[in-house]
Amino acid sequence: MTNNKIQLINIHKNFNNKEVLKGLDLEIIPGESLVIIGGSGTGKSVLIKCILGIMTPDKGEILIDGKNILNLKDYKRSIINQKIGMLFQNAALFDSLMVWENVSFGLMQSNKMNRDEAKGTALKVLKKVGLNEKVSALYPSELSGGMQKRVGLARAIANSPEIIFFDEPTTGLDPIMADVINDLIIECVKDQGITALSITHDMNSARKISDRIAMLHEGRIVWSGRPNEIDNSKNQYVVQFINGNASGPIKMQI
């Protein structure tokens, strides 16, 4: 019926009577790079965690390749997860493992690759994100924030996923490193036809890496459009967000 890669229908999610997602609908077509913008605490990470199966929505449907993925058994769920890569907000590298072991973790677990083979692949992927062999034998705590993000990115793409999620890939980095990450994302995603869903409140990054931008506010998508349309948008929420005004329809909960 549809050819959406990912489709969310009427997603609700509450925490202790606090409604975070209130009937969110979202469609992402194959190969598209969608960026979701929105204030802190609006539920952007929660949204991604629902799709990943780390959280379960209270209501609604999530379809990947047209199939409902909620309530799947562990085994089937893990097959879906092999198609998905994820870069976490703070990279979430395994700090007991070396960099290359982090990158090849998914390969060794799901593809049952042996260590030598996995290391070879890990080094190749690390090279793609601009890290050399020396870095591969370090532990995550020995890396800077920017390098951790790159390792996280390498881990996310190592398994050649069809879908990839980026949770605030440039937050906390200096502008130059942020741009390096943006270029890497474009290189890894657009050029390989991967479907990507990114979260950011960095407008430069959003404009650069997206085919389409959607704005999340009060648990719903309130606006969506092409990156070149966003500056002419009349939507009050969007106008306030991209100009960074404290006054406007968006009330920050202080």
Partner: peptide, 18 residues
């Protein structure tokens, strides 16, 4: 606990590891 609060446990399940 550290793995939980730094999302490493979430990362495990996204890498198809229970």
């Amino acid at each position: 606990g550290t793995m939980r609060v730094t999302e490493q446990i979430d990362a495990l399940s996204t890498l198809s590891t229970n």
